[in-house]
Design a protein around this nucleic acid. Structure first.
Lengths: 349, 349
DNA sequence: CAATTTTTGAGGTACGCAACACAAATTCTG
DNA sequence: CAGAATTTGTGTTGCGTACCTCAAAAATTG
């Protein structure tokens, strides 16, 4: 059985549609581009012809004829952890791809963790940009800066970290509370009824994504796993050295420590401390972001699971969404949905 | 700090390159399209100009000028389980997208589980196709049919199920042994040391993907979780009714049944049997493919984890790979890698 | 140095569509 | 039914590239 074999071998063009509908090219153009001044009956005739011939505008020809070019700014953090480094690289690759699609990406590095600096950077962005992707902070000044850009007709998408109350057109990233809940479920199930304490290490609680993750984590842990009690959240500031010391102290102080959930960076410190303590196999450690380090810890068995967001997917998705928005094209939502990946040693990509 | 702001606001065109290199348009054309008869020194001059101006061919213009159109055949199973239904729908959506990219997809439905029927369908495919995507079987006749297509200059990608020894240009799907290992690790860890037996239900052991999954599953279960012993594999033929009866029998016969791994379809039957037995919460059930049903069982807590391959991603990837192959364009490997997704109740998309 | 080969230039057409100007035909209004 | 308004047609241009032909220039050879 065959479906779709009735499709034309040769694409139907606007001219074919005009001929089929018995009207001129100009009228077809008016209809397909929704211009004014066409009789309803004629519109119907043309649309029937479009449907009959299965006409689809050749996007290559359309883009070429429109002759638009696009300039986007990606505002990313200055020299940072492995995830951000990888994101930057993926954005660079995406830029390379976009260059063939009449689009240009400039990467701006700023200290996105300081609301004033970030807001300032957004405010000073050249008005030549049609779109901006930014690792946002949910802070009044940043929100205002985003709203300001949007008011000036510049499309803004937030990347990795959202500013939900702003007027950004899209958030490209994972649902962080859900990611935290996922981590908690894995923790609870891996520990399967054992009693003890679980430590939560965040980069900083002033980062919305870290807060949301630990919120989701606590939510599930307290409601579903009463055998486990969470210790107060520790701020490791995404710094390996500091995190190592904090983890070592945790391990020394809590003989009943059964699990560690790290919702930020600084994983090398945790690995060092865990391995030095000799309890690496016994303590369940779950963290975020697949990097060359976390991958190694996973393979070695020190790390039990990684919750990941795909930086490449995020970079491409942000670019696609900005492009589609500026060109007035539709997007396919499920292609742009960023998944909460779970990686075990066995399903590493 | 800003990187990349030196990019041109206006794209450089071939003419700009010609002017910069001090040669004619024809020569630049010869160089960028690698035609013969250009002096090495001139090639170098042009390439320097390309690099200096950051010239990138406008893919829209290039496609338009080449005027090529592409016809691909997708060979999918006849009326089948939820996953295949969803895959078919995603292929249809991809076809819609491709229609704007000068490409057409015909969907052919055949009984892909019969090697002779499948091979016959491939042999009878119109030579008008430049590419074929097929849910393959690893069988000599199918392999020969694929090799034959390739020999006739038709690009073949295998989808979901591979024929590794054939000359297909790409396999779009997951690593099935790794998926089985992933399931085993989840099973072993969720059961955390409890003793008992684990049942494995496959659709049919003559399907390579099911065999590979159960192979990976057994591999990890026997080597890492000696507390669990696997029962002989049961063939449910992807049929809910049959699977329900088999599962009910399993539950009745084995009081120490701790887990069920289903590497095929027929999940509704398993859910019915599990829920009827009253042991749904206690038995760990892991299966493949996220469908409306498995999603519901996951939310309800009957099902503990789903190993998934994203049908939308697979459909788009197959189309992109065929298109890139036929148009002689490069692909970006990590965008085309199909991940082994793990879904728990908490990270459902 | 003439003859030959290699390299380069000039110029054109085509791809499918968008965008526009202007004329012609049709319909509506008073 | 004239005049106005609306609707449709004709025609053109340009987007950036691929691909082609033919001639001119330069380099190589005998």
């Amino acid at each position: 059985m065959t479906v779709g074999a009735t499709q034309p071998v040769i694409r139907a063009t606007l001219e074919d549609v005009a001929r089929a509908a018995g009207v001129s090219l100009a009228t077809v153009d008016r209809v397909v581009n929704r211009r004014e001044g066409v009789h309803a009956k004629t519109v119907a005739r043309v649309e029937a012809a479009v449907a009959k011939l299965g006409y689809r505008a050749d996007v290559a020809a359309a883009r070429l004829a429109r002759g638009q070019t696009f300039r986007f700014a990606f505002v990313l953090p200055t020299g940072s952890n492995s995830f951000m480094t990888s994101l930057t690289e993926q954005v660079a690759r995406t830029a390379d791809w976009l260059a063939g699609q009449r689009g240009f990406i400039d990467i701006h590095h700023v200290d996105v963790f300081d609301p004033d600096v970030l807001a300032g950077a957004l405010e000073n962005l050249s008005p030549a940009y049609q779109g901006v992707a930014v690792i946002a902070l949910d802070h009044p000044r940043v929100r205002a800066a985003i709203d300001d850009l949007v008011a000036r007709g510049i499309a803004v998408v937030t990347l990795v970290s959202d500013a939900p109350s702003s007027s950004r057109v899209h958030y490209v990233g994972i649902d962080n509370p859900a990611a935290g809940r996922t981590a908690a479920t894995l923790m609870g199930r891996f520990l399967a009824g054992r009693e003890g304490t679980v430590a939560v290490i965040a980069g900083s609680l002033s980062l919305r994504d870290h807060t949301e993750r630990q919120f989701g984590f606590h939510q599930i842990l307290t409601s579903e796993y009463s055998n486990l009690s969470a210790l107060p959240v520790i701020e490791g500031r995404d710094d390996s050295d500091r995190t190592r010391k904090l983890t070592a102290a945790l391990l020394a102080r809590h003989a009943d420590l059964r699990g560690i959930y790290c919702c930020g960076a600084g994983n090398r410190g945790i690995a060092d401390a865990l391995e030095a303590s000799g309890r690496a196999r016994e303590v369940v450690w779950i963290t975020h972001e697949l990097t060359e380090y976390t991958r190694r810890f996973l393979v070695r068995g020190t790390l039990d699971a990684v919750i990941n967001q795909d930086a490449g997917h995020e970079a491409r998705s942000a670019a696609r969404i900005l492009l589609a928005h500026c060109a007035g094209e539709p997007i396919s939502p499920d292609q742009e949905r960023i998944r909460i990946d779970i990686f075990l040693r066995d399903n590493l990509p």
